[in-house]
Design a protein around this nucleic acid. Sequence first.
DNA 1: TTTGAAAGAGATACAAG
DNA 2: CTTGTATCTCTTTCAAA
Lengths: 170, 170
Amino acid sequence: MVEPDVQIDEIDLALLRSLQADARAPISALSRDASVSRANAYARLARLRESGVIARLSACVNPYLAGLSLAAVILLRATTDAWPRWSSFAEAFDEMPEVEFAADLAGEVDMILLARFSDMDHLRSFIENDLRRLPGIAGIRTLLVLNETPKRSWLLPRSSRRGKRRDRRD
Amino acid sequence: MVEPDVQIDEIDLALLRSLQADARAPISALSRDASVSRANAYARLARLRESGVIARLSACVNPYLAGLSLAAVILLRATTDAWPRWSSFAEAFDEMPEVEFAADLAGEVDMILLARFSDMDHLRSFIENDLRRLPGIAGIRTLLVLNETPKRSWLLPRSSRRGKRRDRRD
DNA sequence: TTTGAAAGAGATACAAG
DNA sequence: CTTGTATCTCTTTCAAA
């Protein structure tokens, strides 16, 4: 959640988009699609990686085909005294392999999890053995996922965003 | 959301794990880590890809470093008449570049979105111009993300899951 | 399934324009 | 920033053990 001074231009975005589509695409193809030279693309990709903009190159595995046929969104409330301790929760969630995504929220829900399970039994034992034993959790609401979008790696913003924007201060 | 007959053994899991860590790792390295021959790894990876277990190889971009410094979880209720039409919503969400993840839920919330924005203005215009104009939406609750885990690509299940499980029927 | 070999493609570094 | 070149590593296929 660092906010450093990384400048990303349209060429970087084009490279990122291509890499998101195919992380194994040859650099010559990426450079062609971004309309720059190979050397340029090479240097930019190195910079994007070192600066952390590209966190990693990864395989997107279909969980439903990999034995995790059940997904749930879990809404959590924390006890008021556990409030300022997101970092301790984050650590705990990181240790739970079923948790794909965890976030600290502002609003009527304190934290949210997206988690995946092999079956109902697995979900039940996760809630009973892992979640309920976590200190600082005041409420657990479990919502089963009936359907989900193909988990887009999300698209990058276009150069000029929709709607107005006066200036950029980053 | 197809549930076909794909069999994945421990060697496949090892390959998937390695590929998740580095999608550009040479196959010789993957095969070494999985303790199989290159030819074997090669054949397995081809099968995993064709069967869709590996949906794609992609770059994981840090949204906060890429100009999307604001994230929100959006909980939606659908009007009762729009109820059985997840597919139409899914299509609409797919067209919205800010939506990273969308799911149809069972429970007190009908649908959930994880969306990313460049700033508050962007979030506001998204809700007003994109969400509110969608027919069939009865309620919108927006929760700002204060903090989130590094968006683990999620770990694959170990061979024997924690807790009990009598038998596998897949 | 594994190992070995072999052709072609791509990565990476560096020079010169 | 580009193009060209050179070396080395991978990919991919295939044959033999």
